[in-house]
Structure formats: structure tokens, C-alpha cells
Amino acid sequence: MIMNDTVDYNISETEPGSRVKPAFLRYHEIPPKEDDEFITKQQTKFLTKPKKYTFSKKVDAFLVEVYKVYKFFTLFFKESFRSPFHLRELINQCYEVGLKSLPLITLTGFIVGIVFTKQSRPSLEEFGAQSWLPSLMGIAIIKALGPLVTALICAGKVSSGIGAELGSMKVTEQIDAMEVSAVNPFKYLVITRVWATTLIIPVLVFYCSFVALLGSSINVNTNDSTSFLSFYQNAFLRISFIDFSESVFKSIIYGFTIGFVGCFKGYNADQGTRGVGKAANQAVVLAMFLVFIEEIMTVQIFNWFRAF
């Protein structure tokens, strides 16, 4: 009895506004009635059997996760083209994604442009080839740095933001609340966000490349007395149509990845406030990882194209 006393005290403390009274403790010790055994027998007939792991707990969990991603992916494309379309929310999200990362992208793009120019100059000077500097910068920025820098910044800023936002909506039952008021939360939250990043991140990539080239041109202009006009002429000289399409293609893929990962992690967040932090964190890590993988793959694929 005394043992029970202490145990039950803790349980009832979790209930707001309640105080412990000994009579309540008996709640746990109801003597079984005659028909209780019958009921238990009836119940065991319907109870789901305990789960057995096919491989091991961790492997199973991983496979389930992969399956979930697949489902999320197919659901995204299925629901994307079915009404209702939340156009206003899509535009909202485009603003959100764009404006949120604009200052950081401006700063980083500009600095990357300057620093990369400064660092490349000595090597080129060694061969007496510093007149190639604008072309080199053009290739480096448009083909690689612009898309990659933008994608990494957005993975950090946008993907984690979406992960945290949807994660907290999930754990505070806001997503369930949408569901019960007959709004499809997947359409309203996920589809709008993923399309927003897919549309806006390519724009940001252009913007970032532009700012980086600007930084580079200022540096070149002050150091090598090359005019701005001839800098840009040279910068774009070596950029072919296929290079350009590669950048656009890459940016679209990055945009999709960043939105998709953020939404997936947030939408499937674990219960509790820890789930929110975890969702945001995992979104960044996974988005960055995928961006690198995709970078390698697109470069490889477009190099095959060029070989033809």
C-alpha cells in the first residue's frame, strides 16, 4: 500500500489541477469480476500481434524510411496536379523563400566572387595568363560556384526553416487541425513549399552568380585595369548553351531537393519539442548531402552530353 502510494502520486501529478487522495489509489486494484476472464479472452482474439523485425530494428527502420520517402515523392506528383491549387499560398511561400535568403546570398555571392578572383590571380600570373582571369571567373561562377553556394545557403536557411516550421506544426497538432477542418495539409503546406523552392532557387542562383561576377569584376577592374565591358565579354566568352542549361537544370534539382527534404523531415517529425529540432537539423544535413551528390551526378551526365 505504501509502495503504491508513492508510485501513484507521481502519476497523478501529471494531471493538471489534481491532488492525490488515497481513495483514488484503489483505482489500480479492482478485484477481477467473473466475466473479466471472458472479456480478456475475447480481447486477445482481436489484438494485433506483436511486431517481429524482418532484419533488425535499425535496418527495418531504414527501409521504412525509404518507403516513406517514395510515398511522399509519388504523393507529391499525384497531388500537385489536382485541384484545389493554393496559388496565393504558393506566392506567399515564394516570397518567403526568396526574401529570407536574399541578404545572405548577396553577401556570400559578392565575397566569393572577390575572394576567388584574388586567389586565382597569382597562379595565372605565374604563367603570364592573367588576361584569362575573366573567362576563368565566368566558368567557375556560372558553372559551379553560383549554383553550389546558393544551394548550400538555402539548404541551411530554407530547408531547416521549413523543417522546423512543419515540424512544430506537426507536434502541436496544427497539421491534424487542418486535416479535420477538411483541408488537405499536404497540398496546403507541402506542395506549395516544394514548388516555391523549385521555382525560386533557380532565380536565386542567377542572382548569386550575378553578384559574384560583380564582385569579381570590381576586383579585376581595380587591379588589372580591365574595363567592365571587356570583363563581361570575356566572362561569357567560354560559356556555351550546354553549360548554361546545366546550371539551370542543376538549380531546379537543388530547389526541389531543398524544399522536399525540409517538408519530408518536418511533416514526419517525431512527437515532442525534440522532434522539431531533430527535423530541422536532419533537413539541413540531408539536403546538403543530396546537393553534393546531385552536383557530382549532373556534372558527370552533362560531360557525357558534351562528348557527343
Partner: peptide
């Protein structure tokens, strides 16, 4: 679900919207 009201234990208000938008949300959407 339009005919069943469900009030959550945790209230589950949309914390990105103000009270007006919260109340209007089911109407605007449906």
C-alpha cells in the same frame, strides 16, 4: 469532416496566423 467539429486538447491554433485568420481559415478554405 465538415460536419464534425474537433476541438483539440492542445487548442492547435495555427501560430503563423493571427486570430482572425485562424477563425477564417476553415471558411476560406472550404
Amino acid at each position: 469532416r465538415l460536419q464534425i467539429g474537433f476541438s483539440f486538447q492542445s487548442s492547435a491554433l495555427y501560430d503563423g496566423m493571427n486570430i482572425y485568420q485562424n477563425l477564417a481559415f476553415p471558411l476560406v478554405m472550404n
